[in-house]
Each structure stands twice: as C-alpha cells, then as structure tokens.
Amino acid sequence: MTPREIVALLDRVATIDGRIDRQLNDASSAERVVTRWTTALADVPATLPAGSWDVGRVVRNYYERRGGDNSAQYHPVEPYDILTAWARHRDALMQRHTDPTPAADPDDVPAFLTEMRTTRTAVATGRAAPIEYRALTSGPHPAIEARLRAIGSCIPSPARAELARYRPVRAVREAAVAAGQPDPLNVRCDWCQAPEGRPCRSRRVRPDGSVRSNARRATPHPSRVELATAQHGGEAAA
C-alpha cells in the first residue's frame, strides 16, 4: 500500500475507533503512524480485482467480530491484524495457482526459474490473479467414450498383453472373465483362507507345523475355482 492509501485507510478507521483518531490529531504523531503503517503494509495491496480482497472490508470485519466486546478488552486495529488477514488470503491464492509453463527455454535454467518465481511473486503480492486449470465438468469427449465402448477398456489389447507377464494374477482373472467364466477371486478361498479380492497363497509347512513360506500364487486353488463356479451357476439359475 502507498502512503496515500494508508492515509485514506487510517481516516476510515478513525471514524470507527476514536483511539486511532486521537493518534492522528498531532501532526508529528500522525506522520509517525503513517510511516509505520506504510512500512509494515508495503507488500499488501489495498484492493484486488473482482473484489476478492479489500483492506477496508478487512478492518470493518475486525471491529464487527468484536462488536459485543468492551473496547478495553481488545486493541485498536494494528498493521499485524491486516498482515494476518492478508497472509490467509495469499495462501488461498497460492493454493489455487498452478504454475504455467514459462516461455523461457527450459535449457536456460536461470531464466526458466526466474520467470516462474516472478509469476509466483506477482500472485503472492496481489499484482496478478492466480492461474487455474479448468476442471472437467462434462465427462470424457464423445469420441473417447465411443472408443472405450469399442475396446472395452482404456488399456489397448496389445498393451494389456504386454502387461500380463508383470500382472499374472490379474491376467488370470481377466482371461477367466473373457472366457465367460466367473472370477475366482470374487469368493473367499476355503483352502488358504485368502479373502475376497486377494490372491491365493501357497503355504509350506515344516515338520513341526510352523509355516516355512507363504508365497502368492498366480492361479487360485482349484477349490476356490469350483466355489466361484458353483455360486455363478446358482446366480445364473436364479
């Protein structure tokens, strides 16, 4: 804020709080007050576009929140009260801001970082509005929806085939469903006690009965497949 803006603000505050008015009665005292406020609020804007920030409204809110208090129970508004309100507003601005790609050459690291810092500083000091990404509100593009319906998945078949060796359990499940068979992982395994959605495990037991290993199986236990098939058949008959 500029000294002129500070004087206008203090004049407005003085109409609300007589204690500020008394500080401005003496010329030398008023000069000290204006200098102190100007120094403290040099990086705080008086207003921002679209009315998102107005320091005059901040001051009024300060006194309205204390409207029911005795005047001796709180201090007259000070620069740090405005700084606190501005810090909250600035944090909200920065949370909405998404760094646009600088126009500088990415290989020119100093220029790239300088442009990014300049943009962030402009937003943080209220000299520029935050740049936000537009949210998707209407769902996928019709062409994308049509393609998904055609291929049945967002992962193309060649890519899914390449992924199969890295996801053996999922590959077995997808193959069963593609063949019209029930997904065995939809039921609990009575053999190894694996819960629904989790793969079966092969337990190796020592002679004393303790478990030596508990490795995950790529294929479910036969009893689990039979149980899933039986349940699937019962649902189909119903």
Rank of each mutant, 00 (worst) to 15 (best):
I131G: 01
A42V: 12
V109H: 00
H232G: 06
A27L: 05
Y62A: 13
Q23P: 08
L148V: 11
A146R: 10
E78M: 07
V13Q: 08
A27D: 12
P182G: 04
W86I: 03
E174Q: 14
S28H: 07
H75V: 06
V77H: 05
T15G: 14
V77C: 15
T118G: 09
E115S: 10
R165V: 08
I16A: 06
S210V: 05
T47Y: 08
P100I: 08
T119W: 07
R216K: 02
Q23S: 07
S223V: 08
P222C: 01
R127A: 13
E5W: 02
H232F: 06
A87V: 09
D107K: 02
V33E: 14
V33N: 02
R120K: 11
A146S: 10
A128D: 14
D21E: 14
V34Q: 05
T119A: 02
G67Y: 10
Y74K: 13
P102G: 14
R22I: 13
A14Y: 12
V7P: 02
R134K: 08
Y63N: 12
P102Y: 02
R170S: 14
L41I: 03
W191G: 03
S202Y: 04
E235I: 12
P76T: 06
R204E: 14
E64V: 11
M1R: 00
R65A: 15
V7G: 04
E64Y: 02
R224H: 03
A238G: 08
S28W: 05
E5H: 02
E196Y: 00
T137P: 03
V177I: 07
R120I: 02
M116Q: 09
R206P: 11
T35N: 15
T101P: 00
L163K: 07
E235H: 11
R134F: 01
A179N: 03
G51K: 04
A103Y: 04
E31W: 04
V7N: 13
S52P: 01
R204K: 10
N61M: 03
P184S: 01
P207M: 05
G68M: 13
P130L: 14
R165C: 07
V211M: 04
C154D: 14
A122H: 05
L24N: 12
G139K: 14
P156Q: 15
D11F: 00
R127I: 05
V123A: 01
D190M: 08
C189Q: 09
A194I: 00
D208N: 15
A8L: 06
D81S: 06
P79K: 03
A236Y: 00
T101R: 01
N25L: 12
D91P: 00
R60M: 12
D54W: 00
S52K: 08
D190Q: 03
R90F: 05
T119V: 04
H221Q: 11
